[in-house]
């Protein structure tokens, strides 16, 4: 086994020329609005580094966020991501080793620092964290250890971002999101930037593009909103681009799931749709290779990228 390759060496062996690599870097840099003069330096920096290390830690989660990773289309499908773009050194659902060998993979990876930590699931504090334990240690303990020296922390899904379902009333396990643990509760000490990518689960391509752009930009985080969500994907509401928007403006509302209006694509506001309040990219990008999104397939938005959406008064079918 050789020493670790740089990305350029790796790409060259896959048949990518230095020239097309530079072209790719130019494109990537411009898509991130980097100053043009920085492109050469950016390309060099990228070519000199081995594949960035990613540690994926799972707390109180349902694995829906890992499944969403597997669904990514576009330029970074998971097999390309795993073999060519990143080194996913720890992921409970995908990794080959178990037990001590698995923990060794995590410790080896964080040893040099500079890694990206992805966390799905909320973290319970009740009973001193005994309600989410991995390898005999609390998940909080494992997270604290893993973020030392990290270049970036990504809280993926509503649970890691905002406490999500476990944090819904009455929050029986005293579950918290990562930002809360760092900023308010000071349970995790880190200087690494945090990006929230909420959604239940989030859109696959938003997750992969955020990771890859961070790498390609030489560790620049995207512009974030007040809830630390990347603005390019969470700047507007799903209502803005909904196929039913025209009917909303005309005052055409479906009153049941299978009435004449529902069949014609009338607005679902009166059936509880929370799209007007929900910042996400579902209606712009659509899900699963542009197949659909909840409103196009007949159900209102439940608001899954917003904090406390599980506890919105009246539930999912009460009209706003």
């Amino acid at each position: 086994m050789s020493e670790q390759d740089t990305i350029l060496e790796h790409l060259q062996r896959q048949g990518v020329s230095r020239r097309s690599f530079l072209k790719f870097c130019t494109l990537a840099a411009s898509s991130m609005a980097l100053p043009l003069g920085s492109i050469a330096a950016f390309a060099d920096a990228l070519a000199a580094s081995p594949r960035p290390k990613v540690i994926w830690l799972s707390a109180q989660e349902c694995t829906g966020c890992s499944e969403t990773l597997l669904r990514a289309y576009d330029q970074y499908p998971v097999e390309k991501l795993l073999l060519e773009m990143i080194s996913l050194d720890y992921h409970n659902t995908l990794m080959a080793p178990s037990g001590l060998a698995a923990e060794k993979s995590r410790l080896d990876s964080i040893a040099g620092g500079g890694h990206i930590v992805v966390i799905d699931g909320s973290v319970p504090l009740k009973e001193n964290g005994a309600w989410s334990v991995v390898g005999g240690r609390t998940i909080l303990d494992v997270i604290e250890e893993s973020v030392v020296g990290a270049a970036l922390i990504i809280a993926v899904g509503n649970c890691a971002a905002f406490g999500g379902l476990p944090g819904a009333f009455p929050n029986p396990t005293d579950a918290h999101g990562i930002d809360d643990l760092i900023t308010n509760l000071k349970k995790i000490t880190t200087t690494a930037p945090l990006i929230n990518i909420p959604g239940c689960p989030p859109i696959p391509e938003v997750l992969t593009v955020v990771i890859v752009n961070f790498i390609l930009s030489g560790h620049q985080a995207p512009a974030l909103d007040g809830l630390k969500r990347p603005l390019p994907y969470y700047g507007g509401t799903v209502h803005d681009n909904c196929s039913r928007l025209g009917h909303y403006k005309l005052g055409n509302f479906a009153t049941s799931f299978d009435d004449a209006g529902a069949r014609q694509g009338f607005c679902l506001l009166h059936l509880g749709c929370k799209g007007t309040l929900t910042h996400n990219y579902c209606t712009t990008l659509k899900w699963n290779k542009g197949t659909s999104y909840p409103m196009l397939s007949g159900h209102g938005c439940i608001g899954c990228s917003e904090p406390n959406f599980w506890d919105r008064k009246g539930g999912f079918y009460k009209s706003l």
Binding site: E3, D5, K53, S87, H91, M95, A96, P97, K104
Partner: peptide
């Protein structure tokens, strides 16, 4: 190529 990169990711420390 993947193995030669020295970064085995999810396959590292398999049996």
């Amino acid at each position: 190529n993947f193995v030669n990169s020295g970064q085995l990711g999810i396959f590292k420390n398999g049996y």
